[in-house]
């Protein structure tokens, strides 16, 4: 299934005419989106614009009523579930930091480490020296070296966000979907997180959903504005923030 994918796809993620209705409410309405390989993309929009539902559709948690969702031009993501899609190389960070609280920082990363997810292998799994090194490296990237032995439950909110980002990096996905990473962070932490994501985007495609405009400005990338389940505007931040429609529904409030 994964082998179907082409070596050098035109687009990494391609959504076309996607619609999803919950109890008569159109959470996603004829949404189309095209993310190129290696791209860093910010998605903004007011509450209820359909950002989380879009993530759910891409990651297999929710099935759309209509429309195409293609990965690397050919793989139809609507046919797979979360675990399949994660193994194809699509990683996801939740809005609320979600880590395994009763395991240590190191164990959280050990679990997320790219590799076989089979039951038998997991019973007899031993970390190789190289994998240990990789874990240490990622712990360094997300700035948790001094906390590596601590239980994830004892981390601060911002540290949990970083741990979760670290868990995504070590999963080595082709594309990271990151939902409001700056939520609940201090200004300094927010800027550090933006830098972190920019660094990550050198090796992976990254899609960031965010409210915080300073954060989006710091990312300095292509921006898509969602409104009522479809795309309202696209372009760099300057272009979209001067777009009258965008000002009316979102920025001007």
């Amino acid at each position: 299934m994964i082998l179907e994918a082409k070596e050098n796809p035109q687009s990494l993620l391609y959504l076309n005419g996607v619609t999803k209705t919950f109890d008569g409410f159109k959470a996603i309405n004829n949404l189309s989106l095209d993310i190129a390989p290696g791209e860093l993309r910010a998605i903004i929009g007011p509450n209820g614009a359909g950002k989380s539902t879009m993530m759910d559709i891409i990651t297999g948690k929710t099935r759309p009523d209509e429309g195409e969702v293609k990965y690397k031009d050919v793989v139809d993501l609507t046919r797979f579930d979360e675990a399949d899609i994660a193994n194809m190389g699509i990683g996801r960070k939740f809005q609320k930091p979600t880590v395994v609280e009763s395991l240590s920082v190191r164990d959280n990363l050990d679990l997320s480490l790219a590799g076989n997810r089979g039951i038998w292998q997991s019973l007899f799994f031993k970390l190789t020296g190289q994998q240990q090194q990789r874990i240490d490296e990622v712990i360094g990237i997300v700035g948790l070296t001094e906390k590596s032995g601590d239980l994830a439950a004892n981390l601060s909110h911002g540290q949990k966000q970083w741990l979760e980002i670290g868990m995504l990096i070590i999963q080595d996905p082709e594309v990271l979907l990151v939902d409001e990473p700056a939520g609940g962070m201090t200004d300094t932490e927010t800027m550090e997180t933006a830098e972190l994501l920019k660094t990550i985007s050198k090796q992976h495609s990254v899609i960031v959903v965010e409210h915080d405009m300073d954060f989006v400005r710091a990312l300095d990338c292509h921006v898509t504005v969602l409104h009522e389940g479809s795309v309202l505007a696209e372009g760099n931040l300057e272009t979209v923030s001067t777009n009258p429609k965008v000002i009316e529904v979102y920025l001007g409030r």
Binding site: T59, K61, D81, E82, A83, A86, G91, R92, F94, T98, V99, V100, E101, S102, L103, D107, D110, L111, S112, R117, I119, S122, L123, F125, M167, Q171
Partner: peptide
């Protein structure tokens, strides 16, 4: 590691799926 996956399921089931 199997045991750690069990704990991950207990603490954060959907996180485990997305892993």
């Amino acid at each position: 590691k199997f045991g750690k996956v069990l704990i991950a399921i207990r603490d954060a089931e959907s996180r485990t799926r997305f892993m």
